[in-house]
Each structure stands twice: as structure tokens, then as C-alpha cells.
């Protein structure tokens, strides 16, 4: 059942992005930025946590989950350290994604030649 929920949730988010892309002048960069902010906003009221609980792994894939992970790590640290924790813990949960993206990008950019 989680597979079905994952399919529909990620599909729905992508469809939403595609509708915005096709019907407005916003580019892909605008939309991804918008969706990250949306993810952080939804987590302000723990809505995204509920979505992850129901949808499972699928909810971690869209870029909205990036915003959710940022605010989640920040709040978890803020619980321990106070207000400064928001700054300390910001990248706690997204570190794996950002670090691996940087490392793979560097390695592949070294090895491969751009195709044109």
C-alpha cells in the first residue's frame, strides 16, 4: 500500500510542478525553489511529518522534503541548544544528500567529457 501512496504523492507533486511550469512564465529553477520553501512551510505545522508517516519513502524524494529536512534538523538542535541550534543543526539531515551530490559531481566532472 505504501507503494501506491508513494506513487500518487510524488506523482501529484510532479504534476503540480508541471502545471506551474506549463501555465506560467516560471522556470524549473523557480519551481524547485518554491517547492523547497513550501516543504519548510508545511513542516512549520508538522504537516509534512504526517505526510511522511502515511506515504513512506516516496515523500522523501520530492524537493519539498529537502526543506522539511532542513527545518527538522534545525529544530531538533534548537531543542538541545536553544535558539542558536537553528543555525547549528540546519544541515544535519540534508548533509548526506548535499555531500554525496558534491562528491559524485566532482568525480564525474573529472572523468567524463561534456556531450554536445
Amino acid at each position: 500500500m505504501t507503494y501506491l501512496y508513494s506513487f500518487f504523492f510524488v506523482g501529484f507533486v510532479c504534476l503540480l510542478g508541471q502545471i506551474i511550469l506549463d501555465n506560467t512564465k516560471l522556470t524549473a529553477g523557480h519551481i524547485t525553489s518554491l517547492f523547497v520553501v513550501l516543504g519548510a512551510f508545511l513542516d512549520t505545522f508538522s504537516i509534512y511529518d504526517e505526510i511522511i508517516k502515511y506515504v513512506g519513502g516516496g515523500a522523501l524524494v520530492p524537493i519539498t522534503s529537502f526543506g522539511h529536512s532542513l527545518i527538522h534538523g534545525a529544530l531538533a538542535k534548537a531543542n538541545d541548544l536553544g535558539g542558536i541550534g537553528l543555525v547549528v543543526g540546519m544541515f544535519d539531515l540534508t548533509a548526506a544528500g548535499i555531500t554525496s551530490a558534491i562528491i559524485f559531481t566532482f568525480i564525474f566532472a573529472m572523468i567524463f567529457k561534456p556531450k554536445d
Partner: peptide, 17 residues
């Protein structure tokens, strides 16, 4: 475009799960 985005995105979600 919408249908393609929906299906491909959905499949990525299934793959993730």
C-alpha cells in the same frame, strides 16, 4: 506533459520506497 510528469514522478516514488 502533465500525465508524463505524474507517471514518471510516481515511478521515482515507487523506486524510492
Amino acid at each position: 506533459n502533465g500525465i508524463v510528469a505524474f507517471v514518471v514522478g510516481g515511478l521515482i516514488g515507487v523506486l524510492a520506497e
